[in-house]
Write a protein that binds this DNA or RNA. Structure first.
Length: 863
RNA sequence: GGGGGGAUAGCUCAGCUGGAUAGAGCGCCUGUCUUACAAACAGGAGGUCGGGGGUUCAAGUCCCUCUCUCCCCA
């Protein structure tokens, strides 16, 4: 028998047994449906600690629902993660000295599928190590056939309803990956740079000064804009003066626009519609021509307006060169240091350029009203509540979502153009052959749009896809809408909103009833974990070292409802200690050789522990209903450690020494029930302990949630609570005297104690009844004991302590008295509150008097 | 610049619709190898609830304001 729990010995065994037996239990069950869809991890690498938290949480709720008799369905899967995967793969190719253009599209996609398979296998291996129990046969991949059907169907339907449309607009362009990205895939970063003041000559022989941070784009200027209220420029506007772009002498108008900030720079700005979002809007208002001088590769093109020296230079080099040329020509007036926010691609880390291009868009605003209306009715309801507000805010400011991407890896857009003519309206169809047949076209004359859809387009359909849409009605088995979504706050907009959008579009329902939002697992100082900082915790290593349960416990026990969840080895160690505590307790119960596991009330401690257990089950249920996993975990921890082990098992020692055979069976009965309520959280050790104490093959995971233990006599339970309190106050008194509990071997029982109380008290403290009659008295809830042969020199400290306690009670008494003298309180407060205060005052006074009396008594005793 | 969260014990957080001596885990201090567990047990210290003002008989809790912090958006 080992004193240490070795978690690794059986982990694999339980994983395979759960996989084998638990789904059968699932489908057999005719209970209330409970469903979850997994936030599918990207097939870009291995899982991190944040995934561990997310999946553990889902497992907790799924296992809990299952034990409570629900028919559960938790769908696992993975996400093709278009841009992320392609970026990873391109980097990999680069390190092999190859590239995607060298490989060609077909071979590249083949590589991508191979990569996906590899990744998926690794990820699923890691899933399983955590001991999670999704419905494995239901696994989906966002690019599998089922999902592809769903994507095509959704696209075509939404296109028909004009929710999806094509447009030539400014989008965020990733020059490295050469694709459009959506607004939220762009991070803002403040970078040090310059703001240059340039002088543009005007056609009335004067000039106008403008300020810009991007002098390399002056060649794409369409106008100079000033505020209409700005007196400085009134004459320019009144006289219709035009300006000339320096270096190239292209003539552009000076226009008035309200959006120009008079206080910024020189009060005038150059308008470059093709390369700035704000300028694009100004351009639209004034119908300005759009001049594009940047290529898709982020380099200056050989547009006729661009000086030869700048052709083919990237933005940074072009800027340097342009400044030099402007300086030489005398157009540069001033250069100041300036911090400006620039867009950085989340995926490639390169600078994002606003770029005019033809893209597909989805008008999210169509669903805004309905989504907000449903949110008001609590659909979905968010935990913690405040995230509902954030979600609502996101909805209220939704815009068009650019859904096309110039990538290879993804769902290709189901739009077909007549060969060689992309300017015509496309045929949008799920099946081009059928479509052409019906219209008497030759399908060979059409080519599919090269672009693919944003990853989140297919992820948005995930809850529908997981339950068979569009072929099957997802509502059929009652699993849709799903019961609960568990995800990180960072993808509320990316994902949660978009799933709601699709479900509103096709089912007019939100796809989940409740949403549990959790924070990011960070290091113990609250910093984001990142490989470059070296502060990551690899879940696989953590599980190898501490066991999967310790990891699960550590994550759950510390899951604060904040944005940042601090996490470190300390948490894992405390998880490990708890597992060890459970293991040792189980071993001890075994050593008592229980004859069965029937719980029979025999001693008052039985009533007490049964009551504590019932309270714990109720607390776990209530906490999980409120999605407070941490509280549930704490209830379990507190019950087991501080009530079951510290008290019940301690008492079991003396009870069994005294020939009580029932206590072992009772301890085992409680332990077995405890295993069931703990199994959603720490499933491995529950199976291990069950095997240890029962030598039984049946799984804890397939049992039923315990019902209340019945037949508790509250008087007995409270009687034990008195003993509990008395032991505590005895220990405290001894400690105040500066003695140790161990050095006192016998006490005098003073007065008439009930026999059971006397036995329990003496046994718990390992004391004997003394033959003498005198001693130092200690008063407790159940009566008085006297400690014989005590050195009277230690007593003065005890007297001081009592006096101090009595004094400490005074301010409180004064306050209560004051409150009762306050007419406002007596007249306005509810009667029961007033009575409460009266009772409290009486108690406080009694307590104080008792302390004073005792102090006097001891003082007399010591003389 | 706009919006939101937060400020309670050394740390991380609870504290419901105002009403007890403000709680938990971890950490810290003291004592103990007591027959499951020293990865344990027993005991203990530690908070003017960010500052100021207001509403109320009564404020950690409601309102205003200031300071500091985190997040999101532009």
């Amino acid at each position: 028998m080992s004193n240490f729990y070795n978690p690794s010995q059986n982990e694999e065994r339980w994983v395979s047994q759960w996989e084998k037996d638990v789904p059968i239990h699932d489908s057999k069950s005719k209970g209330k449906p409970f469903s979850i869809v997994i936030p599918p991890p990207n097939v870009t690498g291995s899982l991190h600690i944040g995934h561990s938290l997310n999946y553990t949480l889902q497992d907790v709720f799924t296992r809990w629902a299952r034990l409570k008799g629900c028919s559960t369905r938790w769908i696992p899967g993975s996400d093709h993660a278009g841009i992320a995967t392609q970026a990873v793969l391109e980097k990999k190719l680069e390190s092999e000295g190859s590239s995607k253009s060298e490989l060609g599209k077909e071979a590249f996609l083949k590589r991508a599928w191979e990569w996906k398979d590899e990744c998926r296998d690794v990820i699923f291996q890691q899933f399983k190590k955590l001991g999670i129990t999704p419905y494995w046969p239901g696994e989906r991949f966002t690019m599998d056939e089922q999902c592809n059907k769903a994507v095509k169907k959704a696209f075509v339907e939404l296109y028909k309803k004009d929710v999806i449309f094509k447009g030539n607009r400014l989008v965020n362009w990733d020059c490295q990956l050469q694709t459009a990205v959506s607004d939220i895939e762009v991070d803002r970063e403040d970078r040090n740079g310059f703001i240059w003041t340039l002088e543009y000559k005007t056609n009335d022989g004067k000039s106008i000064k403008i300020a810009t941070t991007r002098p390399e784009t002056i060649f794409a200027d369409s106008a100079i804009a000033v505020n209409p209220n700005d007196e400085r420029f009134k004459s320019y506007l009144d006289n219709g003066v035009n300006a000339f772009i320096p270096l190239v002498d292209v003539e552009i108008p000076i226009i008035a626009d309200d959006s120009v900030d008079m206080d910024f720079g020189e009060g005038a700005l150059k308008v470059t519609p093709a390369h700035d979002h704000l300028d694009f809007e100004i351009g639209e208002r004034h119908d300005l021509p759009i001049v594009t001088i940047l290529g898709k590769d982020g380099k200056l093109s050989s547009h006729e307006r661009v000086p030869n020296e700048l052709h083919g230079l990237n933005v940074v080099a072009a800027r340097r060169k342009a400044v030099e040329m402007l300086e030489n020509s005398g157009s540069l007036v001033d250069a100041k240091k300036h911090k400006s926010a620039i867009g950085i691609s989340q995926r490639s880390g390169s600078v994002i350029e606003p770029m005019l291009s033809e893209q597909w868009f989805l008008n999210m605003k169509v669903f805004k009203g309905r989504a907000l209306e449903l949110l008001k009715d609590g659909s979905p309801s968010f935990y913690p509540e405040r995230w509902g507000g954030v979600y609502g805010d996101w909805w209220s400011k939704v815009e068009n979502w650019c859904i096309s991407r110039q990538l290879w890896w993804g769902h290709q857009i189901p739009a077909w153009y007549p060969k060689g003519d992309k300017s015509k309206d496309p045929i949008v169809s799920e099946n081009i052959e059928e479509e052409c047949l019906s219209k008497n076209h030759d399908s060979k004359q059409f080519v599919q749009d090269e672009d693919v859809l944003d990853t989140w387009f297919s992820s948005a359909l995930w809850p529908l896809e997981c339950f068979g849409w569009p072929e099957d009605d997802p509502k059929e088995n009652g699993f849709f809408p799903t019961s609960l979504l568990i995800t990180g706050y960072d993808i509320i907009f990316f994902w949660v909103l978009k799933m709601v959008l699709m479900s509103l579009a096709f089912e007019d329902k939100t796809p989940f009833k409740e949403v549990l939002i959790h924070g990011l697992v960070c290091d113990k100082k609250g910093r984001k974990m990142s490989k470059s900082k070296g502060n990551t915790i690899d879940p696989l290593e953590a599980m190898d070292e501490y066991g999967a349960d310790s990891l699960r416990f550590a994550l759950l026990f510390n899951m604060v409802p904040a944005e940042v969840i601090p996490f470190g080895n300390d948490q894992l160690v405390s998880g490990q200690r708890f597992m060890n505590k459970i293991w040792n307790a189980a071993n001890y119960i075994n050593s008592l050789e229980p004859k069965n596991s029937d719980f029979v009330f025999y001693d008052r401690s039985d009533h007490w522990i049964a009551q504590k257990f019932n309270e714990t089950v109720a607390s776990v249920d209530k906490s999980l209903e409120g999605k407070d996993v941490r509280k549930a975990m704490q209830s379990i921890h507190h019950f087991f450690w501080n009530e079951f082990c510290d008290w019940y098992l301690e008492i079991a020692k003396s009870r069994s020494n005294n020939g009580d055979l029932q206590v072992a069976s009772n301890a085992k009965a409680i332990m077995e029930k405890f295993l069931v309520i703990s199994s959603p959280f720490v499933p491995f050790i529950c199976e291990d302990v069950n095997l240890l104490i029962n030598n039984d093959e049946s799984l804890v995971a397939t049992r039923s949630w315990p019902t209340e233990l019945e037949g508790i006599d509250m008087k007995e339970s409270e009687g034990f609570q008195d003993i509990y309190d008395s032991v505590k106050s005895y220990r405290k008194s001894i400690s105040i005297l500066g003695l140790s509990v161990e050095e006192i071997k016998e006490v005098v029982i003073d007065g008439s104690w009930n026999q059971g109380q006397e036995d329990a008290f003496l046994n718990i403290l390992r004391l004997k009844k003394s033959g003498t009659e005198n001693g130092f008295p200690i008063e407790m809830a159940i009566g008085k004991v006297m400690i014989p042969n005590i050195d009277s020199s230690v007593l003065s400290e005890r007297v001081d302590e009592l006096k101090r306690n009595a004094e400490d009670a005074e301010p409180r008494i004064k306050r209560l008295e004051g409150q009762l003298q306050n007419k406002g309180f007596i007249n306005n407060a509810p009667k029961d509150k007033v009575q409460l205060i009266r009772d409290r005052l009486r108690e406080a006074q009694q307590e104080r008097d008792e302390l004073v009396k005792r102090a006097a008594w001891i003082q007399k005793f010591s003389e």
